[in-house]
Design a protein around this nucleic acid. Sequence first.
DNA 1: GGGAACATGTAAGTCGTTACATGATTAG
DNA 2: CTAATCATGTAACGACTTACATGTTCCC
Lengths: 222, 222
Amino acid sequence: MRESTTPYVLLGILGLFGPKSGYEIRAVIDQSVGHFWSESFGQIYPQLRRLADKGLIRQADEDAGPRERRRFAITEQGLEALEGWSRQPPRRAIPRSELAVKIFFGRFAELPNVRFMIESELRSAKQAFEVADAGELLTLAEDADDASLAYFLIITELGRVLADARRRWTERALSLLDAADAGGNRAVIEQIHDLRAADARSTRTSGRSSRKSRAKKKETRT
Amino acid sequence: MRESTTPYVLLGILGLFGPKSGYEIRAVIDQSVGHFWSESFGQIYPQLRRLADKGLIRQADEDAGPRERRRFAITEQGLEALEGWSRQPPRRAIPRSELAVKIFFGRFAELPNVRFMIESELRSAKQAFEVADAGELLTLAEDADDASLAYFLIITELGRVLADARRRWTERALSLLDAADAGGNRAVIEQIHDLRAADARSTRTSGRSSRKSRAKKKETRT
DNA sequence: GGGAACATGTAAGTCGTTACATGATTAG
DNA sequence: CTAATCATGTAACGACTTACATGTTCCC
C-alpha cells in the first residue's frame, strides 16, 4: 500500500463530527464504521501528530496538560486533502478470511471442529446483524436532518446485508456438512442442487421488490 | 498478529494437492480460495525456506538448479503442525473496506463520484459471482470423489453468497442515493422503509426453502 | 530471435498490532 | 480508597507489499 488510509479516516471523522481526541475518534470509528474499519491507538496517536505537523488538523484546546485530553479539529487544508482523497476510487483488497481458509483445509481438522467454527460464525453474524440494525435505528433517530443521512444509511445497510449473507451462508454450510456426514459426496452434490434450486426460486421472487425504486428513478430523470 | 497464517496456508496447499513449487502454490491459492486469501511471492519464498528449515516441508526434487523449479512436499511433521492449527478457532479480524469508509465520508466527495464507486462495486460483485459460480461447476466436475468436496463447495458457496450480497447491497445503495438526490432526507427515510418491507417479504418466503435440508438433518440424527 | 509465461529470490520500507508505561477522573 | 474508565503516548516486532534482479522454457 503506497498510501495509508488511516490519516484520511481520522480527517473524515473530524470533518463529520467536529473536534475530537484520539480516544474519542477511536470510539466513533467503532460505533459507526466499526464493521468495516478499525484503528488502534498505536496508529491513531502518532498519526494525529503527523497530521498536526502537516497542518491538516490543529489542536482545538490549547490549554491541555501533558496527560490530558487533547482534541483536534480539521483545518481548511485538511478538508482539501480529505476531499481530494474522497474523490479517488477506493483501493480494493481481498479480505483475508482465516475462517474460509480453515474450512477449505477442513480435511485436516475433525468434523465437529469445523462445525463448531461455522456455528460460531453463525452467532457472530446474528450479533453483527443486530448491531447494524440497532445502528440504523439510531441513525434514523439522530441524523434525520444530517447531510450525511443517505451515506450513513448505506453503511448500516451494508452491515445488515453482509451480516445476513454470512448467516445464510452458515446455514447452507451446515446443510452441506450434514449431507457429507450422512450420505457422503453423493448427498453433498444433491444438496448443492437443492441450494441452486432455492436460489432460482428466490431470484424469481425478488424481481418484484424493485418496483418501488423505479418510481424514485423516474423522479431523478425529470 | 502473534502468529502468521501464511505458513499454514502453504502447508495446507501442499497437504491437499501434493508437491508444489512456490509459483504453483500461488496459482492454486488464486484459483481456489482466491476470494478469501492471497499470498505474494515476497511472502511465499522466504516462508518456504523457513518451513523447510523447520522440517515441515522437504524439497521433492533434489536435482533442482539455481533458478529452476523447486517443488516441496509436506512432511509428517508438517502434517501434524497443520492439523494442530486446523483445530484452533480462526482469528477473526474486521475486514477493512476502503469503499465503505469512502461512502461513509461521501459528503466530502461529489455525488456522481460516490455513485461511480458503487457502480464499480456492482460490476466487481457480478464478476466475483460468475467466478465463484464457474469454480463451483469445476469443483463438481473435478472433485466429485475428493474427500474435501464438501469443504470446497462450502467455500465456493461462500463466494456466491457474498458476491450476491454485495450485488444486492449496491442496488439498495443506489436506490438510497437516488432518493437523496430526488427528494432529500425525507425520501431517503421512505426508501429505507421500503427496503425493510422488502426484507420482511423475503423472510416470509425463504422459510420454505429449508424443507429440503430438514430431510438431510433427519438422516443425521438416526 | 523474441516475446510471453514460467520461475526464484532479495531488499527496502511501510503498515499495523501488541504490549507496555503513565497518569487523571469518576463512581461506588 | 479503589476499581473502572478515560486518556495519551512509545517501543518493539512482525507482517506484508512492492519493486527489483535474474534466469529459463516454450512457442511463434
